[in-house]
């Protein structure tokens, strides 16, 4: 780095977000289950005769994986080995942070109809402003 100030070496320990690792685990589990089922249920001779688009479609359900705040279980649908759809069979957050704030939605909703003189949001581009914000703000007060 050519800057005159030295860049600090990364002082942080490697942290892997639990969500990412959970999803990897679940997918691995589902993929494993799918692979075994696929091979088990589809002898090679069957595959060679497949003509219609739906002939080889299989749906398998992965194991329910427990993670820090609950349980995640996925269902995978695939046709001829190509994954087409991943659906959540169950995804709970038994003791997640979000469960602690049920009253917030109600309060936020109640405040939603108040008059306001300004709007805060993720940094919009000037193009988005041209499309939307100008008219919205001009209606205010």
């Amino acid at each position: 780095m050519p800057n005159s100030k030295n860049l600090m070496a990364n002082p942080y320990t490697k942290k892997r977000p639990w969500v990412a690792s959970t999803i990897v685990m679940v997918l691995a589990s589902v993929a494993g289950a799918f692979g075994i089922n696929y091979l088990w249920l589809n002898p090679v001779s069957d595959l060679s005769g497949t003509a219609g688009g739906t002939t080889g479609t299989k749906t398998v359900t992965g194991d329910a994986i427990e993670y820090r705040y609950g349980v995640v279980q996925l269902e995978v649908t695939a046709t001829n080995g190509k994954i087409e759809k991943i659906a959540e069979v169950q995804a709970t957050a038994s003791s997640g942070y979000m469960q602690a704030f049920p009253y917030l939605n109600e309060m936020a909703l109640k405040a939603q109809s108040a008059d306001f003189g300004n709007l805060s949001g993720a940094t919009f581009s000037s193009e988005a402003y041209a499309q939307a914000l100008s008219s919205a703000l001009n209606k205010l007060g």
């Binding site: 405040a111 939603q112 108040a114 300004n118 709007l119 805060s120 949001g121 993720a122 988005a128 939307a132």
Partner: peptide, 20 residues
């Protein structure tokens, strides 16, 4: 009073106010 935008683009037809 400041409105907080819904977490969707203000250019979207579904844009609106999350809360105030």
């Amino acid at each position: 009073r400041i409105a907080i935008s819904k977490p969707i683009s203000i250019a979207s037809p579904d844009a609106g106010v999350l809360t105030v």
